[in-house]
């Protein structure tokens, strides 16, 4: 590699989030487009898991990027960009939950579990087929209903850790809670979920 090549800035695809933010602050629209491409799926997914409404999740995810852009100068490069944007996304999603009197589209967990009965078995048939997608959807509905039955502080950690797969350290920063609290909340949330999902977990572990 020549000296001239070494002095060139990294391409946008290779640039870190923090480098992209620097360029966005300096006025680069291409850097912003790259950042949106990089995070649009993760943010939409996170918000969707919080509010369980795909269309609204896309709207809120767009608002997250709007806020990132409008407040780009508030970003401090000393902190990780990912935790900053996840914090904005989680806060907006939680505000949306508060705004709604009740969650739309989340079916009662008891009704869903009752509908499975003893003869069904969500995981009995693992062959690809026309029913598999429907089974998967039913499982997703049950899991989401169980998550939303948790108290919010447990719901938040489980969504960030097990659905979004953030590290413990990232969760500490996103939720502004100490590491010990993150660990205990994850422990309790998983224990409670395990109890709620016991019928399908038993079936899954035995099949």
């Amino acid at each position: 590699m020549t000296a001239a090549e070494q002095n060139q800035p990294p391409s946008l695809a290779d640039a870190s989030d923090e480098e992209l933010m620097e360029q966005i602050v300096a006025g680069s629209e291409a850097a912003f487009a790259q950042l949106v491409r990089r995070y649009q799926g993760k943010i939409t997914n996170l918000v969707h898991r919080f509010i369980h409404d795909r269309e609204q999740a896309v709207e809120i995810a767009q608002e997250v990027f709007l806020r990132v852009y409008l407040h780009r100068k508030r970003y401090r490069p000393s902190g990780r960009f990912s935790t900053w944007i996840y914090t904005i996304a989680a806060n907006l999603a939680k505000n949306e939950i508060r705004r709604r009197s009740r969650l739309r589209g989340v079916t009662s967990l008891d009704k869903l579990l009752e509908a499975t009965g003893d003869s069904g078995g969500f995981f009995a048939d693992k062959r690809p087929g026309p029913d598999q997608a429907a089974h998967q959807h039913e499982v997703e509905e049950i899991v989401m209903a169980a998550i939303h039955k948790l108290p919010p502080k447990y719901r938040d950690v489980i969504l960030l850790r097990d659905v979004q797969q953030l590290t413990y350290e990232e969760i500490e920063q996103v939720l502004s809670i100490p590491g010990g609290t993150v660990r205990s909340r994850i422990n309790r949330a998983r224990t409670a979920l395990k109890e709620m999902l016991a019928p399908i977990l038993r079936r899954r572990t035995t099949s």
Partner: peptide
């Protein structure tokens, strides 16, 4: 069962 529970959560499809 706890492992199966976490596996179930990890397996949720992305939107």
């Amino acid at each position: 069962q706890l492992g199966a529970c976490v596996e179930l959560l990890h397996g949720l499809p992305d939107v």
